[in-house]
């Protein structure tokens, strides 16, 4: 039993609750970075170093910078205190309880005969031994070769999202007329 796991999981849960509770946006964004780092640590323990890498760089690095620049652009508007409603809490508890009930039939953590481990038989690790001519990282082989079409699609999605951000945010400095969004009412 790895006891570091439980420390990380406890910290993850505390961080998530802190994000939900806090109202100051600056602190929330910082906690989001911490949350990403903690989940990256858990991913390392779960034998997924490739994913942990990406999560640490994306979640704690780029995502934090983007949120902070959004905050700089929109102003540190504090949330307006409102009458607390119990409806969201109720919805969340009911949904959570249903999901927990659903997990009771799930294969146990780490069990080697879970459907996930059994289905592609021979597994990709075995297949890559024969197909890949000594490429050690199975994740890379799977990403770029076995699932090459999928990755091409994902890359295109990243490109499309980038183009969309540029279309929304880029301003033509030469022309003074502001770009109008549909349904824009205030000048």
């Amino acid at each position: 039993m790895n006891f570091i796991v439980f420390a990380i999981l406890a910290l993850l849960a505390i961080t998530a609750v802190a994000i939900a509770k806090l109202r100051e946006l600056w602190a929330v964004i910082m906690f989001t970075g911490i949350y990403s780092f903690l989940s990256a640590s858990w991913m390392i323990i779960l034998d997924a170093p490739d994913v942990a890498f990406t999560e640490a760089a994306v979640g704690a690095g780029i995502s934090t910078v983007l949120m902070l620049s959004t905050m700089a652009l929109t102003g540190k508007a504090e949330e307006i205190p409102r009458k607390k409603s119990l409806v969201p809490l109720f919805v969340v508890i009911v949904t959570g309880a249903t999901l927990v009930y659903g997990t009771l039939d799930m294969p146990h953590f780490g069990s080697p005969d879970a459907p996930v481990q059994v289905y592609p038989d021979p597994s990709f690790v075995k297949r890559s031994e024969a197909d890949m001519h000594g490429l050690p990282n199975v994740v890379t082989a799977l990403l770029a070769s076995y699932r090459g079409y999928d990755t091409l699609g994902e890359t295109t999605v990243v490109l499309t999202a980038g183009i969309a951000v540029l279309l929304i945010l880029r301003r033509n400095d030469e022309k003074d007329e502001p770009t109008q969004l549909a349904g824009n009412k205030t000048p």
Binding site: V51, T54, E55, V58, G59, L143, T151, E154, L169
Partner: peptide, 29 residues
Amino acid sequence: YSNPLPSVLMLTAIVVGIATTALALALVV
């Protein structure tokens, strides 16, 4: 070895996720 397939799926999902988050934040701006 642990299963590489979930790693691959999530790897691409993370990067696509940050791209779409950026899109959402751009809309917020």
